[in-house]
């Protein structure tokens, strides 16, 4: 069980970090820059929300197989940790992106303009105005992506299969236990998930509430 949970954490941590690096510039561009065919771009990034995990997994498997398009380019990642990492990034992108975008949308363009007139260059503007304004949103988006990755099943199973220590994450481990009728062990693992989910959602909510009290935006 420990091995499966450690693998899940490793996957979730790497995935949410990747999303932070990719998602923040992307969200910034979507909010503040002119993006051609914005609706189309957004639809593509948000599509994993509605796509069945098995469908997404199927296409990734085809692409990452040794004979697949990406496989032949050297990304021979099917049934490997790298494969489920890529799948998780794509699958959790909508969650992170939505949260990041909301964080940037709260930033008033007028405040950024005025800070320019006050002599703040790009670096100071980010450090003193933008980052302190958006970090709760970034953190909650990243936590959501982390939690979502911990819990995913379909995509990971399709792309990674069920290799202990390589691709068998905790959610698949539970599935295995139930298949093998080992309910007692499955119950313990499931309980760990319940505790984890609760703590993370509580953290996200607390962050939101505290932030609203600082900036004075109305609490929902």
């Amino acid at each position: 069980m420990t091995e499966a949970f450690l693998l899940s954490f490793k996957l979730a941590a790497l995935t949410s970090l990747t999303l932070l690096v990719l998602g923040v510039p992307l969200a910034y561009a979507l909010v503040f820059k002119r993006v051609p065919a914005r609706a189309l771009v957004e639809a593509v990034f948000l599509m994993p929300l509605t796509l069945p995990p098995t469908v997404l997994g199927y296409y990734l498997l085809i692409l990452l197989a040794p004979e697949g398009f990406l496989g032949r380019l050297g990304f021979d990642w099917a049934f490997r940790f790298e494969g489920i990492w890529l799948a998780s990034v794509i699958f959790s992108l909508p969650f992170a992106l939505t949260a990041y975008r909301e964080a940037f949308q709260a930033v008033e363009p007028e405040v950024l303009e005025v800070s320019r007139t006050l002599g703040l260059g790009t670096l100071r503007r980010w450090r003193r105005v933008i980052l302190p304004w958006i970090w709760p949103g970034l953190l909650s988006g990243t936590l959501l992506a982390f939690a979502h990755t911990l819990g995913e099943f379909g995509v990971v199973l399709m792309v990674g299969g069920n290799l202990p220590g390589e691709t068998r994450v905790a959610s698949i481990y539970i599935f295995d236990l139930v298949q093998a009728l080992e309910f007692e062990q499955a119950a313990r693992a499931a309980l760990v998930f319940v505790a984890l989910s609760f703590v993370m959602v509580l953290t996200v909510r607390t962050l939101e509430v505290r932030w609203r009290s600082i900036t004075g935006s109305s609490a929902r």
């Binding site: 007028e110 405040v111 005025v114 007139t117 105005v129 302190p132």
Partner: peptide, 20 residues
Amino acid sequence: RPEQRRVGYLPQGYALVPHM
């Protein structure tokens, strides 16, 4: 550029930084 002008500008909404 705005950063170089040293022109104080107060828009209608005042544009204070909310977390400061």
